[in-house]
Measured scan of single mutants.
Amino acid sequence: MQGVVKVNSALNMRSGPGSNYGVIGTLRNNDKVEIIKEVDGAYEIRFNGKVGYASKSYITIVN
């Protein structure tokens, strides 16, 4: 499943599905991501070869 990031500035990509996990990357508006699955209000995603988590509130599914 594919998604597009929709933010005003940037969205943190984290090592786990919550803000208490470390930041492993930054997503920008209109970045395209692969959605692997939904976990606790976040999506597990793949972006630029990395797998991490981002809030589903800022990712629009575009299948």
Rank of each mutant, 00 (worst) to 15 (best):
E38F: 05
S15R: 07
S15Y: 06
L11T: 11
M13D: 02
N12A: 15
K56H: 04
V5Y: 00
D31T: 08
N12P: 15
I35S: 00
Y21L: 05
S15D: 11
G3V: 03
D40I: 06
G18C: 07
I61W: 03
R14T: 13
A10N: 11
L11R: 07
Y53W: 14
K50L: 14
E34K: 05
G3Q: 01
D31F: 04
N12Q: 14
Y21N: 09
F47W: 11
R14C: 11
K50T: 10
I61G: 03
K6T: 12
Y58T: 07
K6E: 06
A54T: 08
P17F: 05
G25E: 13
Y43D: 00
N30P: 02
K56I: 10
S15A: 11
R14K: 07
N63V: 13
E34W: 14
Y53H: 02
S57V: 13
K56D: 04
V23Y: 05
V39I: 12
G52S: 02
S55N: 14
V7K: 09
Y58G: 14
N12C: 15
V23N: 05
N48Y: 05
N48I: 04
D40K: 10
Y21V: 05
S15C: 09
L27Y: 00
I24S: 04
V4I: 14
N48D: 12
T26E: 10
T26S: 09
L27W: 00
I45L: 06
N20R: 10
Y53F: 12
G52K: 01
I36R: 04
T60R: 12
Y53P: 01
K6A: 08
K6F: 06
Y53C: 03
K56T: 09
G49Y: 03
L27F: 01
G49Q: 05
K37P: 00
M1I: 13
G25C: 14
I35K: 00
G52F: 03
N8I: 12
G16K: 05
G3P: 01
N48F: 06
V33Q: 00
I59Q: 00
S19L: 14
N20M: 09
G49V: 02
G16Y: 04
V33D: 00
N12H: 15
S9M: 11
N48R: 10
N30W: 08
K37G: 15
E34M: 11
N48A: 10
K37F: 05
G41H: 08
N12V: 15
V5E: 01
S9Y: 11
G41K: 06
I35E: 00
V4S: 04
G16N: 06
F47M: 04
K50V: 13
G3S: 02
I59R: 00
A42L: 15
S57C: 15
K56S: 10
K6P: 01
Y21D: 15
M1K: 12
Q2N: 10
A54R: 00
I59F: 05
K6Y: 06
Q2R: 12
S57H: 14
G3H: 02
T60S: 11
N29M: 08
N20W: 12
E34N: 06
V23W: 05
M13G: 02
I45Q: 00
A42I: 11
M1W: 13
I36Q: 04
G41S: 08
K50Q: 11
I24N: 04
Q2I: 15
G16C: 07
N12W: 07
V39M: 09
K6R: 13
S55G: 10
